[in-house]
Amino acid sequence: MPPPAPLELTLVLAATRDMGIGLHGGLPWTGLKKEMAYFARVTKRIPPSPSSSSSLPSQQDGTAPPAAAMKNAVIMGRKTWDSIPPRFRPLKGRLNVVISRSAASLSPSQTSPGAGVVDENEKKGDNEVIMAPSLEQALSYLGERRTNTGKIFVIGGGQIYGAALKSPQTKRILLTRVLSDFECDTFFPLVLGDDNNNNGGEWKRSSKENFDDWVGENVPEGVQEENGTRYEFQMWER
Rank of each mutant, 00 (worst) to 15 (best):
M1V: 01
M1D: 04
P3H: 05
P6R: 12
L7R: 14
L9G: 10
L11V: 12
L13C: 09
D18L: 09
G22M: 04
G22N: 03
L23N: 01
H24Q: 11
G26Y: 02
T30Y: 14
G31Q: 07
G31T: 04
L32A: 04
A40C: 11
A40E: 13
R41D: 12
V42Y: 13
I46S: 14
P50R: 03
P50H: 01
S51C: 01
S53H: 14
S53R: 13
S55F: 12
D61C: 03
T63Q: 13
K71L: 08
K71M: 10
A73E: 10
I75L: 09
R78K: 08
T80E: 06
W81F: 02
W81R: 00
S83D: 01
I84R: 03
I84T: 04
P86T: 06
R87A: 08
R89L: 00
K92N: 09
N96T: 05
V97P: 02
V98H: 02
V98S: 02
S100N: 05
A104L: 10
P108I: 00
S109A: 15
P113H: 06
A115Q: 14
V117N: 09
D119K: 01
E120R: 12
E122S: 01
E128H: 13
A132L: 04
Q137Y: 08
L142Y: 10
R145N: 06
R145F: 02
R146Q: 03
N148V: 03
T149P: 10
G150I: 00
I152W: 14
I155T: 05
I155R: 11
G156L: 05
G157A: 06
G157H: 03
G157E: 03
I160E: 09
Y161S: 05
G162C: 02
A164I: 06
T170D: 07
L174W: 05
T176A: 07
L179Q: 02
L179K: 04
F182P: 00
E183Q: 12
T186G: 05
T186C: 12
F188S: 04
P189K: 06
L190Q: 06
V191N: 15
G193W: 15
N197D: 15
N198V: 05
N199R: 14
S207L: 07
F211Q: 09
V215E: 15
N218Q: 15
V219I: 05
E221F: 12
G222E: 06
Q224H: 01
N227S: 13
N227Q: 14
Q234I: 01
W236T: 12
W236M: 11
